[in-house]
Computed example of a mutant assay.
Amino acid sequence: MVGGVAAVAGPSLGGFIVSVLGWRWIFYINVPIGVLIFIFTYLFVPEIRNSAKQQLDLMGVLLVSLSCLFLTYGLIEGQHFKWSMYIVGILIISVVIFIIFYVQQKLRHKRDPLIPFALFEDRNYTLMNVVGVFFSIGVLGLMLLLSIYFQSILGYDAFRAGLTLVPASLISMCVSPFAGKFSNKIGGKYLVLAGLALTLIGMIWVIFIMNGHNYWVQFMLSMVITGFGNGLLISPTAAVAVKEVKDEVAGAASGVMNTVRQLGTVGGSAAVGALLQNRISAMNHGSEFESVFDISTKFGGHLSGYLTALRESLLLPMAAIALACIACAFVRKNAKRLSTNEIK
C-alpha cells in the first residue's frame, strides 16, 4: 500500500517539480528526503538483534556497488556516447568486477556472504527474479514512451503528462493488497500470469489508439488495465520468490530481488530510449538530434514517421512482458524448501 501511494504521487509530483523547479531538482530533492528517512529510522524503527554473531561483508558491498555503478553509468550514458568503445569498456569493467565479487562470495560462503548465491538453486526464486527484470523493463519502457508521446506529440507539460499516468498507479495501489491476500489461496503463479497478461493487453491498446491527436481520457482504459495487471503481480511475485527461502536469508533474498528490479528499470530505459532514437534517426535519413522530446520538430509537422517509431519501440516492452510470461509458466507449485545448510 505504501509503495502504491508513492507510485500515485510520483508521476504527478515529479512532473510538478520538473515543470516548476527544473529537472535537476528530481535529484536534489532526494537529499532532504534521505536525511528525514535516516532520522525517522533512527528514532522510530525498533532495533532487532540476531542472537548469532554476524559480520558485514564490507568487501562484498564495495565490489557489488562498484559493479552496479559502472553498469548503471554505462547503460544510462550509452546513447549519449553513441555506444562507443568508452561505454563498452565501462560495461566490461562492470562485468569483471562482478566476476571478482562472485569469486569473493564463493570463498566467503561460510562467513556470512553478502549474497548467498545458493539462493538461485531455488528454481522459483530464480524465475521470479527473471520475471521481475522483464516486468521492470516492460513497464518502465511503456511509461517512458508514453511520457515522450504526451510531451512531444500532444504538447503536455511534465506535470500534466504525469497526471495522465496516475490512474495506472492508483488502480495498482488498490488491487495490490487484495492480490497479496489471495496469493496463497489460488496460487501466486496464476495471479502473476494474469497480471502480466493484462499489462500486455494494456500495451496493445496503447499502440492501437496512438494517432497524434488524442485526448488524455482516451488512455484511461489502457491505464486502468495496465494498473490492474501491475497490482495483481507485484505482491505475488515476491511471495512466490521467497516462499521456500529460509528466514535466515530472507533479507538477502529480498534485497537481491529489489536490486535486480532496479537494474531492470535502468536497462529498460536505456534499451527503449536507444531503440526509439535509432528508429527515428533511420526514418529521418540518419539525422542526429539531441533529445527524443524534441524529435517531432525534425519531421516538419509530418508525424506519421514519429508515431511509427513509437509503436515499433513499444514492441520491446511488449516482448519483455511476453518473456516474463514464459518464465512464470515454468514456476513449480510445490518446491522443496532449501535448508539452512544448503543456503550456506
Rank of each mutant, 00 (worst) to 15 (best):
F150M: 02
A319R: 08
I209L: 07
A9F: 01
A197G: 07
I186L: 06
M173V: 01
N50H: 15
S304C: 00
T265Q: 13
V224H: 00
V2K: 06
I207N: 10
M203V: 04
S136Q: 09
M220N: 04
G180I: 02
A252Y: 03
R49P: 01
Y73S: 00
G22H: 05
V130A: 07
T265N: 12
F178T: 04
L170V: 09
L144D: 06
G60T: 13
T297M: 13
F70I: 07
I204T: 10
N184V: 04
A161N: 04
R279G: 03
L196F: 03
L198V: 00
V2N: 15
M128V: 06
E244C: 13
N214L: 07
G132Q: 11
A168F: 04
T72P: 03
F16Y: 05
A241L: 07
V8L: 03
Y42T: 10
G229T: 02
H80S: 14
N284V: 15
Q104F: 12
A250L: 14
V240F: 09
V245A: 13
L316R: 10
S235N: 13
D112T: 15
R160Y: 12
V8D: 05
E312G: 07
L21F: 14
P32L: 03
D294M: 11
E342I: 11
S136L: 04
P116Y: 08
F16L: 09
F81H: 14
V139N: 10
M85R: 10
G251Q: 08
L63Q: 11
K298P: 01
N184D: 15
T237R: 11
F208C: 08
A158H: 05
L146H: 02
R279I: 12
I209M: 04
I148Y: 11
V331N: 05
A270K: 00
P167K: 11
I48F: 01
L314V: 14
T41P: 06
I209T: 14
M283A: 09
A52I: 12
I321Q: 01
A319W: 07
V224F: 05
S287L: 12
V18D: 05
R111L: 10
M210Q: 01
A239W: 03
S291Q: 05
V35A: 14
L307N: 02
K106H: 11
Y73A: 07
A335T: 02
W25D: 11
G273L: 01
R123L: 14
R111T: 13
D157E: 05
Y86F: 08
F182M: 14
H213W: 12
G162Y: 02
A320I: 01
V64Y: 11
V8I: 15
F182S: 06
S94E: 04
Y28P: 10
I92W: 05
M85Q: 13
R332Q: 15
G60H: 10
K336D: 13
N214W: 04
G227I: 02
M128N: 11
R311Y: 04
E248T: 14
A329R: 00
D157Y: 00
F293S: 12
K246T: 06
V266D: 03
F70E: 00
L69I: 13
F330M: 12
K106A: 08
L36D: 12
A168N: 06
A319T: 10
D112P: 06
I93C: 11
F299C: 04
F208V: 10
L316G: 08
I48S: 03
S94G: 14
I280V: 15
L13F: 06
N129D: 13
Y306H: 10
A252P: 02
A161I: 08
G187R: 00
Q151G: 03
G227Y: 02
S222G: 06
F219M: 08
S65W: 03
I326P: 00
